[in-house]
Design a binder for these strands. Structure first.
Length: 252
DNA sequence: CTGCAGGCCCTTA
DNA sequence: TAAGGGCCTGCA
C-alpha cells in the first residue's frame, strides 16, 4: 500500500499507522489495513468493493504481465525499480479532482500540495469540491489556502468548466494526444501537468509525464536519451516505477 | 539568509 | 526554437 500512497499520484491519503491508511475517494473514506502483502479494506461491503474499489485500484489490469514485459528489456535500472515498487498501481481517480490537484502540484512539494487540497476541501468535508463549489471562492480565499500564484490558474479553470469551454465529458472522449494538447491551451497547464492529468485523470497509461525526477533519471542513467517507444501503451506505468524508486530508495 | 519543491508563462534572440 | 528570469509559499 505504501507504494501506492507514496508514488505521488494521490494526495488525499493518510498514513494512520505503519500498516493502516485512509483514502478519500468518491466522497467516501476507505480504511485499509495491510498484513504482509495482503491488503484488507475495513468496513467495506462486497458490493462497494465490486462497484468502486475494484475499478479504483485498477484491478482489471494485469500488472504482472507488464512487469514481465519491462523486465524482458534487460534494463537493469528498470528491473530494480520494478522489484522495489512491486505493488504499484495507477489509481483511477476522478478527472476534475486530478485537474485541480496537478494544477496545484506545479513547483510545489507534496506536503504542501496535500495541505492545499485539504484546505480546499475543508468546508465540504470529505467531498471533493465541484467547479460550482470552487466558483464561490475568491482569489483571496485561494491565496489564504496557500495556492499562491496558482490561484489565478484555478479560478480560470473553474470558470472554463462552468462556461463549457472545458467540457470534461468531451475531454474523456478525446484521443490522448489531442486531450493533452487541448489541456495545454488553458493557462497554468503545461506539458507536464497535462500529461499527469491524462495519466491519472483520464487513465491513459501510455502518457509519460516528465517531471524533475524523471528528467534527472534520464540524465543520470540514460545519458539524456530514454526511448519510451519500447513501452508502447504503458509508458506511464514504467514512469511510476521509476519515480517511486528514485524518490524512495536512499541507496541509489 | 539562500535554495528549492513533481512547472509554467513571458520575453528575447 | 531555445534559453533564461520571475513567481506564491513554506521549510531546511
Amino acid at each position: 500500500m505504501a507504494q501506492i500512497a507514496d508514488s505521488g499520484q494521490c494526495f488525499r491519503v493518510t498514513n494512520i499507522s505503519p500498516a493502516d491508511w485512509e483514502i478519500i475517494v468518491c466522497n467516501k473514506v476507505l480504511k485499509i489495513h495491510q498484513e504482509d502483502d495482503s491488503i484488507f479494506a475495513i468496513e467495506c461491503t462486497r458490493e462497494e468493493y465490486e462497484k468502486i474499489w475494484f475499478d479504483y485500484f485498477d484491478m482489471n489490469r494485469d500488472y504482472g504481465l507488464l512487469k514481465k514485459k519491462i523486465i524482458s528489456t534487460n534494463d537493469l535500472y528498470l528491473i530494480s525499480a520494478v522489484d522495489y515498487g512491486y505493488g504499484i498501481r495507477i489509481l483511477k481517480q476522478n478527472l476534475w479532482e486530478m485537474i485541480v490537484t496537478f494544477l496545484i502540484s506545479q513547483q510545489n512539494n507534496i506536503p504542501r500540495i496535500k495541505k492545499i487540497i485539504a484546505n480546499l476541501c475543508t468546508p465540504f468535508k470529505i467531498k471533493f469540491p465541484t467547479p460550482y463549489d470552487l466558483e464561490k471562492y475568491t482569489e483571496k480565499d485561494f491565496l489564504s489556502f496557500g495556492l499562491g500564484y496558482r490561484s489565478v490558474y484555478l479560478q480560470n479553470i473553474v470558470k472554463s468548466v462552468i462556461k463549457g469551454d472545458l467540457d470534461l465529458n468531451k475531454l474523456k472522449m478525446m484521443e490522448t494526444a489531442q486531450a493533452v494538447k487541448f489541456l495545454q491551451s488553458f493557462h497554468g497547464i503545461g506539458v507536464k501537468v497535462a500529461n499527469c492529468i491524462a495519466l491519472y485523470g483520464l487513465h491513459r497509461v501510455e502518457s509519460f509525464p516528465i517531471d524533475i525526477w524523471i528528467k534527472n533519471i534520464i540524465k543520470k542513467r540514460y545519458n539524456n536519451s530514454f526511448d519510451i517507444s519500447k513501452f508502447e501503451g504503458y509508458a506511464g506505468i514504467v514512469q511510476q516505477y521509476m519515480y517511486f524508486y528514485e524518490r524512495n530508495n536512499p541507496d541509489i
